[in-house]
Amino acid sequence: MSFRFKVSKLWIARSLTLLVANCAILSRVSIPVAKADTKSSIPASVGIWKTTKAPFIYKQGDLENHVDGEAQAFKQYDFRECAYAEFAQGGKGNQFITVDVFQMGSPLDAFGYYAGQRNAHAKYLKIGAEAYQEKTALNFWKGAYYVRIAITAMNPTPAFQQALPQIAQAVAAKLSGSSATPPMLNMLPPGFSPKTDKYQRSDIAGQVFLKNGVVAKYPSAGSMAELFIIQVASPAACKDAFNKYKTYLSDPKTLAVGSKVAPVPGIGDQAIEVKTKFSGEIVAAVKGKYLIAIRKAKDKNAAAALVKAAVARTK
C-alpha cells in the first residue's frame, strides 16, 4: 500500500512537472492555438453558400502563389498564414465568393494592413473590430486577423452582395482577439479625415529608414496633407533618422525650384520646413524618440501647427 502510495506521489509529481512545463511552452508559443483559428474560422456553409473544397492554407513560403507581389507587403506586417476558401451556391459552379483569413503577428499588424487598404467612402458595418462593404468586397479586422471577402463572378446577382455580410459574420464569430483600437493610434492629434488613420510598418513617405509609424490625412493643411509620427528605439536613433530625412529633403532632386531647407523655431528638439518638387510643403520635427512630419501640405502655417500639436502629445 505504501509502495503504491509512493508511486502515486511520484506520478503526481511528474505529471505536475509536465503540466507546468507544457503551460510554459504554450504561453510562449501562441501560434498553434491561432493556427486552428485561421483554418477553422471558415465555415463549410453559410445558408445556401457552401465551400467548393476544404480551405487551403498558404504560409510564408507560398503566399506569392496566391496573391502574387502583394505577399511581400503582407510579410512586412508579420504575416503568419492565410486560409483561403471559395464559396458557391450549393458548393458548385465557377461563380464564387472568395474568403481570405490572414493571420498577422499582432492586432497592430492586422489593423495596419487593413487600414492601409480601407475605403473611407464605403459602407461601414459592425463586424469584427471594424468592417466595410463595397460593391464586390467586404473586409474586416479582428484581433490579429485581417479578413477579405470578394465576389469573383461575371455578372453577380444581388444574392452575392447579400451573402457578403452573412459570410463575414460567420467568420468573425469564429475568430478570437481584441477589437480595441491599437494604442499607438492615440498619438495622432485630432482633426484627421475619418478612416484615414493607419499604422505603417515600413517605407513611410517612400523612405526605407522611416518605419513603424502612424499616418493620417489632415485636410486643414491641404487636401492631400498627410501627417506621420514615427517611434524610434532611442532619441539618438531618432536624430539619425531625422538627419537622413533632412539630407533627402535637401537634395536638389527633391527641392522645389528656389526652395531650401529652413529651421522652424519652437517645435520639438529641432524642426525644419521646405517646399519640395513632388510632395508640396513639408514640416518635420524631432522630439526625443519621435520623428513627426507633415507632407503634401498646401498651408505651411497649418502644417506647422499640426506638427506642434503632435509633438505635444508625445511622452
Binding site: D203, G206, K217, M224, K253, T254, K277, F278, S279, K296
Partner: peptide
C-alpha cells in the same frame, strides 16, 4: 488619388531615373 502617391515615393521610379532610363520630373 486615394493614397496620394507621388513619384518620389516610388523607389523604382527614383532609381530608374538615376540609371538614366527616363524622366521622373514631369515639369
Amino acid at each position: 488619388t486615394v493614397k496620394g502617391v507621388t513619384p518620389d515615393a516610388v523607389n523604382h521610379l527614383v532609381l530608374a531615373n538615376s540609371l538614366g532610363r527616363g524622366q521622373i520630373d514631369t515639369s
